[in-house]
Amino acid sequence: MKRRSLILLTLAAALCGNASAQQTLRMSTTTSTDNSGLLAYLLPIYEAKTGTKVQVISVGTGKALELAKNGDVDVTLVHARAAEDKFVAEGWGIDRRDVMYNDFIVVGPESDPDGIKGSKDVIAAFRKMAAGPAKFISRGDNSGTDIMEKQYWKQAGAQPTGARYVSAGLGMGEVLTMAAELQGYTLTDRATYGVYQAKTGLAIAVQGDPKMFNPYGIIAVNPAKHPGINYKGAKQLIEWITSREGQAKIAAFKPSGQQLFYPSAK
């Protein structure tokens, strides 16, 4: 009986040890990395390699940085460079690294009611959309895409008014679906559009302007601001996703044969 009890105690201790050995990492990120399927592809590889469980909170970039600022996550992966630099400069984040990039595009109905299809000048296209008959569906959620859209309207010096401008307050996938339902235009990252293209039937109207470059960065929450965060785990993820292996995995992510993100770690 004593021998059996000893074996049970040993097994229990081993199970507890395994449970404590698996660390948890909390990450806030944009809806584009989630909606595109990138994280569903990438994170299981990292988790199997490190024994870390990554908990993902997918929101707009503004909210993702706010969660990091409050210490509610350990690391953040976002795409709004000016906001990222401000976050780091104010001391909330450290170890920022470039991860990858793609681009923004304007998509809309095949019929192209605002006459912008084929344009490579995003500001000129936004001026036409401000005056045209179709609706424009905005993220309206302080995401990286929403921040970029607001900059385009400012540079265009005009914006749709009244019912023609719909501020959805939703993620990219939902906004693409809404644009299809309302036969309107929207600004989207190319990755999420790639996943939703067949579902929505929306066509690319504007692409190729250098102003539509869309870089992503990863930042660890500063442990000096929030001593309880998992900085070791955050640093480990940053090192892996910017390593040769992590970058190769990002480049290899090609749903339906189309590359959606391009590695950019230095």
Rank of each mutant, 00 (worst) to 15 (best):
L11C: 08
H79W: 08
L43C: 13
R26V: 08
P113D: 15
L182Q: 09
A134I: 04
K211S: 09
I238N: 15
H79R: 14
V106F: 12
E174K: 06
S138C: 08
A19E: 05
L39D: 01
Q23R: 05
K254G: 02
P227D: 05
V59L: 10
L6E: 08
A180F: 01
G162V: 11
C16Y: 12
A252Y: 01
S20P: 13
F126Y: 06
T61Y: 02
A130G: 15
G228T: 03
R127Q: 07
L42Y: 07
S32C: 11
L202H: 12
V166M: 05
Q22V: 08
Q183F: 06
G162C: 10
P109R: 04
A251V: 11
T61V: 06
R4I: 12
T29G: 14
D85N: 13
K199N: 14
G71T: 04
I147C: 03
S5H: 08
T177P: 02
Q247H: 11
A125Y: 08
Q23T: 12
G173Q: 00
I7M: 04
N18Y: 10
H226F: 04
V221S: 06
T50E: 13
G108W: 09
P113R: 09
Q258S: 02
L43D: 09
L260H: 00
Q197R: 07
K225E: 11
E239R: 09
N214V: 12
T188F: 14
V78G: 14
T50I: 01
T186P: 10
S256F: 00
F261K: 07
T10A: 15
I229L: 07
W92T: 09
V88F: 05
T30W: 12
I57H: 02
G115R: 10
L187K: 13
Q55E: 15
